Amino acid sequence: MKHFFSIIGGMGTIATESYVRLINHRVKIAKDQDYLNYILVNDAQVPDRTAYIMDHSQPNFFNDLKDDVLGQAKLGPDFIVMPCNTAHYFYDDLAALTDIPFLNMMRIAVHQFVDKFPGEQKIGLIATEGSIYDHLYEDEIHRAGKEVEFGGAEIQPMVTELIYRDIKEKGTVDGDLYHEILRKMHEEYGCEVILLGCTELSLAQEQAPDHPYHVLDPQSILADVSIELALQIRNGADPKQVCAKYLYK
Rank of each mutant, 00 (worst) to 15 (best):
I14F: 11
H88P: 00
I221G: 12
V173W: 04
S57T: 15
M54K: 04
P83Q: 04
N60T: 13
L201K: 06
I23T: 11
A15E: 08
T172Y: 10
N24E: 14
D238L: 01
E187V: 07
G119L: 03
G236N: 04
G76S: 10
D93H: 07
Y19N: 01
P83V: 01
F4H: 02
A109D: 07
P77L: 03
I132N: 03
D134I: 11
Q112F: 13
E129N: 11
A87F: 03
S18A: 14
P239S: 09
L196C: 06
Q205W: 05
R183A: 12
D166L: 08
Y248S: 00
A230H: 04
L196A: 05
Q72D: 12
K122Y: 11
T98W: 03
A51I: 03
P218G: 07
D34I: 12
Y89D: 04
L229P: 09
K168G: 05
F4Q: 00
E169W: 02
V114N: 08
R49H: 03
I233E: 09
D99T: 15
F4N: 01
H3P: 00
V215D: 05
V20R: 04
I39V: 12
M185G: 08
T160G: 02
E228G: 05
Y38Q: 09
S18C: 14
T13M: 13
D34C: 02
H25N: 13
N104Y: 14
V20L: 14
Y38K: 01
V27G: 05
Y19E: 06
G197E: 00
M82P: 01
R234A: 12
M105Q: 01
I7F: 03
P59N: 12
E120F: 07
V159M: 09
L231S: 12
L136W: 05
A204F: 01
E161F: 05
P157T: 01
C198T: 04
D32T: 15
H186Y: 07
D32H: 10
L195Q: 00
H25K: 11
D43Q: 14
R49M: 06
G12R: 09
V114M: 07
M106V: 15
V193Y: 07
L229E: 11
A51S: 14
E138R: 10
S18D: 13
D176I: 12
P218Q: 00
E169A: 13
E200V: 10
N42A: 15
L125W: 01
R49Q: 04
E154D: 13
R165M: 09
S6E: 11
K245P: 01
E206F: 12
Y164T: 06
L136K: 00
S202E: 00
D78Y: 01
H179K: 15
D166H: 13
Q72H: 10
G197M: 00
Y133H: 14
E169H: 10
L247V: 05
Y164V: 05
D134K: 13
